[in-house]
Structure formats: C-alpha cells, structure tokens
Design a protein around this nucleic acid. Sequence first.
DNA 1: ATGTTCACTACTGGATCCAGAAAGGGTGTT
DNA 2: AACACCCTTTCTGGATCCAGTAGTGAACAT
Lengths: 235, 235
Amino acid sequence: MSSLSTKADDIARLLEDEIVAGGIAPGTVLRQEQLSERFEVSRTPVREALRRLAALGIVSFEPNRGVRVRSISAGELREAFLVRAELEALATEVATPRMTPADLDALDAAEKRFSELTAALREQSRRPEPGDSTLFVEWMQANYAFHDVIYRAADLPLVERLAKGARRTFLGSRVWSAKVEFDDLYVKNDLQHRAIREAIAAGSAQAARVVAKEHVLSSGRLIETVLEALGAQER
Amino acid sequence: MSSLSTKADDIARLLEDEIVAGGIAPGTVLRQEQLSERFEVSRTPVREALRRLAALGIVSFEPNRGVRVRSISAGELREAFLVRAELEALATEVATPRMTPADLDALDAAEKRFSELTAALREQSRRPEPGDSTLFVEWMQANYAFHDVIYRAADLPLVERLAKGARRTFLGSRVWSAKVEFDDLYVKNDLQHRAIREAIAAGSAQAARVVAKEHVLSSGRLIETVLEALGAQER
DNA sequence: ATGTTCACTACTGGATCCAGAAAGGGTGTT
DNA sequence: AACACCCTTTCTGGATCCAGTAGTGAACAT
C-alpha cells in the first residue's frame, strides 16, 4: 500500500487541530508516552510530530523537560491581527482584478451565509439562555469561508499560508464560551463584508484593500473586547 | 552537563544556514544516512531536524521517498517580496513613534555603513574583473542591519519572524555571482534608506510606511532583474 | 526548623534494530 | 524489440532499547 501520509504527519495534524480548537488548554505539558499510547504508536512518530508543532510555534520545546502548549499573550493576539490585516489587505488588492464572475458568485454565496448567521447570532444573543458556542463557531467559519474565496482568487499561496497561521493564534482561546452583547460589532462585520464585496465588484482594488484591512482590524478589536469581557466575568 | 540545545536542533540550524547560504543546491535530495554520518550522529536526530525544516518550508517531504531542498519559482520569489513589503511597512509605521534617540543613532550608523558599501559596490561594478560576491553579501547584510534597527524598535516579534522567513526565500538563489550593472538601483536603495530615516526622524509614521513599502518592492524588482540577467547570461 | 545531600523515579534524547516502500535490473515471454 | 514480472538493493518509517537529565522526597547535618 502506498502510504500517502506518515503517522508523524497524521498525529501532527490531529494534535494541531485539537489544540487550535481549544481541546488542550495552553500551558499543558504534552507527554510523549501518553500521546504514544493514545495514538497507539511508538514514541518516535510522536516526537517528530512534536518537532513539527514546535517549528510552527504551536508548542514550545524545552530540552529534556518536555513540550508545552504555548499560551498567547494579549500582545501576541493583537500583533497577529495586525499581521492578518496587512496580509488580507494585500490579498484583497491582488484578488480584485483577478476575480472571475464565478468567483464573485462564490463571494456572494459566502456573504449571504455569513449574513444569515449574523442575524441568527443577534437573535440568540437577545435571549437570556447561555450562549451556544456552535453558532459562534459557525459564524466564524462563515467569516473564514468568505475570505477564502478572496484568497483563492488572489492565488498567493505564501500569503494564504501565513494569514491562516495568524488566524490560528486566537483560536484555542476561550472566545467561544462568551455570552455577551455585541450586536453592533456583529453587524459592523457584516456591513464590512458587503463593502468589500462592492469594492471588488466595482473593480477598485485600492478601495477593497482599505476596507479589507479595516475589517480585520475591527475584528481584532471585537475579539479583544470579548476576551476582556470574559476576563471580567471570570473574576 | 546541562544540554541547552538538542542535536536535532543543532543539525536543523546548520542545515538551514547551509541551504540558505546556497551551499546545497535546490532540488538536492538529502539522504538521512549520509547526513547522519556527516554529523556523526544516528538517523534519529537527523530525521527530527528534517521535520523541522519541512515545517519551515525549506525542504519538501515526500513520504518514503526522501526530502529534497525546495527550489523557489519566480512567482514565489515575487510573492515573498510582496509579503515582506507589507510587513516591513507595518513594522516601520509602528516603530516610528517608538524610536528613541539611541535607536535613531543606531539607524544613522547602519545607514552610513550601507551608504559606504553602496559606494564600494558601484566602484567595483565599474571595473572589468569578475564580481566579488563577498562585497555584495556585505551590502545585503548592511541592508538587513538597517531594517533590523527598525524591527527592534517596533517590538513586533511575530512580524519580525515572518519577515525574516520571507527574506530567507531568496537567499540561496545564485544572486551572488551576478556581475551586472545596477548603479541606479543601488543608489536608489541608498536614497530610499535615507528617505525612511528622514520620515522616521520627522515622526511621520504614514510617510515612513509608504517609503518603506516602496523600498522593499523596488528591492524585489532589483533582485528579479538580477536573476533575469543571470538567466540570460547562462544561456 | 532549615538547608544540604543523595538516592530514586519519571521522562526525554539518541542509538539501534526491524519491516515495508520505491527504484533498478535482469529474465522470460511474446 | 517491447513489455510484463520478479528479485535485489537501497532507503525510509516506526519500534525498541539504552543512556543521561531533571525533578522529588527522604535522610541527615547544622
């Protein structure tokens, strides 16, 4: 059988997903033996997987002491959004003149779904019962889907890779469990998506660029606000 | 003895440096056993090092077939400069209001050295003898030193890491061996450094940003031109 | 009570060993 | 001559084994 992937790669992917999804809390020490019996392999591929995660900056490697899941500071989070803003701006600028009608349709579809989820999220946040994280997650994914259309059109693999890496940093924080009022910010995000769509459709790359950048930055402010609120709630 | 670094890490660093410096040609297949006897270790740490390089995108991993040094296409090179331009612009913008007098002094010193090397390079390129690559390398390093001052002031570790990763991509290409006339472009680079310095000193972050971005982009065009000329020479 | 030493445990880093994949080459068939 | 088939070689991926480090706690000295 031709093995298209190695166990080390599989494990790395699984662990990455789990960490990013918040399944493993930051600061947790990952024990090689524990992982090896969990995945039913020897320690060798586990270690190679951990090396990979370390190179990606997802875990920190301390020689002879083990690897631990990195926790991101508020500063790092802020910086990640700054970076994403620049990269997203670039991708949007480049994508604009390259968008085919099919791409525009895909963008519209993504926008529509995002818009619906935004409405649903507002609806939910109006009710008193505890926040359902799945809806928030879906909303987030719809957001990403929208931007992915742009990335595909831009055809800048490096930019895409780096931007998605920057995305990762703030997943895993416990934004999900937020139960807070952010009507205006949700709506703002939706409006910005429309603005981006309009600018792209109009073919004005510079305008699209500016809007895209501002969009990411304000998303960053949203997340920061949520996290602050969470921190306040916890006390 | 307290080992502050592991063999896998050492090997990864050594290999990375060697590849980036062009010591190993792109496309070369790296054999585990060969590396293990070269570094006088077993294959285990070698493989972990290779995993790391693969995660960094320096080599490509083909299961059961080996790793080979990635060769970068003209498109990737261009993209790397686009990314660097955005990141450098961001760093410069953020750095401007944070620059201390000491930072400004350091910037001046770096600019001065760069200016001198530029002059030396022009001088050399006027003579008929074959180009000395060391001078070009020094010129490049002086360029980086200038920008490093800005990174330090900006205090954005993520941006710095990513930008330096983007730098890497085009080292290793055989730009060094170029023997071509680029007076105007060399000078342009020098002038741009001064312009950046002026804008920073004047405290106008936006102006500094714009100049920095344009600077990186024009550096990219310089490199592209050199590579094209090299390609033409080789035929 | 506090601090030091030292053995013990738990774990990582590296070496070695084994199974299986991929490339190459020869042989036989047509 | 072209092609399929098989066998050998070479190499990777993974498992196991060994050495050495960091952490822990008990015994001991002050």
